[in-house]
Nucleic acid binder design. Sequence first.
DNA 1: CTTAATGCAAACCGTTTGCATAGAT
DNA 2: ATCTATGCAAACGGTTTGCATTAAG
Lengths: 145, 145
Amino acid sequence: MEGNNLRKAGLKVTLPRVKILEILEHSGNRHLSAEDIYRKLVNTREDIGLATVYRVLTQFEAAGLVTRHHFAEGMAVFELSAGAHHDHILCLDCGRVEEFVDTGIEERQTAVADRFGFAISDHALVIYGHCRKANCPHRGAATND
Amino acid sequence: MEGNNLRKAGLKVTLPRVKILEILEHSGNRHLSAEDIYRKLVNTREDIGLATVYRVLTQFEAAGLVTRHHFAEGMAVFELSAGAHHDHILCLDCGRVEEFVDTGIEERQTAVADRFGFAISDHALVIYGHCRKANCPHRGAATND
DNA sequence: CTTAATGCAAACCGTTTGCATAGAT
DNA sequence: ATCTATGCAAACGGTTTGCATTAAG
């Protein structure tokens, strides 16, 4: 069933690619690191190497299937390309990540770029904060699947 | 002369710390990587190790003297803390980095955080683009000093 | 004189790559 | 049958750390 998505992306249908795509689609967490994905594969007793996870994710990125982010310094996280652009706000306590779009922010970025004579190619906006303890439903989410 | 800044920050006045602070203050580029600083030290025939550069920069960060950014994945750049918060726009062609403040963007970020029930702790906004070739005065700036 | 800072080299960690083998078309 | 994808282990690049030495107070 994932095979079609892969074929559409011009990628051969192989077990690692199918499994990794499944994890990206059906994991509760939309933002996974290569290690996260590798661990889930190990849990499922799939015999797939970490190097393959990186290779597949890089191919998926090139094919436009996933987007790579650098929320935490020194480690990339990957999310299925959701079509529309969005920015992120994340909780420093529990790792929860929410996505948002604010057209006002987008517009003002364009204005800033114009002011400096830049043609915008891309941007990265991450807001770091703390969600209120009481209603922080994702506490420890990083280890869930 | 840099000694006072160091003493005020509660740091012992040592040659590596003075030299690195001087580079941060007097280099044309406000945004330097550890390697950039190390190379400048080598050019000046200062016998300071790369590990010391990293240690000193980390101390400076802890003391609030510098801020660490992650514009390019996989490498940190450091800038003297300029007091006021600002965001960055950078040229993918020549590496030029400009700083800006947009109160509208700041306000909207707060609104977004409120909407999700987050208390903002920090944020990182980097706009990536291309400055117009004709007036891109910083071409190759990365190798200047 | 005492304690912290430095230089060097080795360790680290996330990521990439070379190469021989397994697998998709 | 062909040619790409995989697994493994080794390499990589930026950064950190252990330890003996040097220098600041």
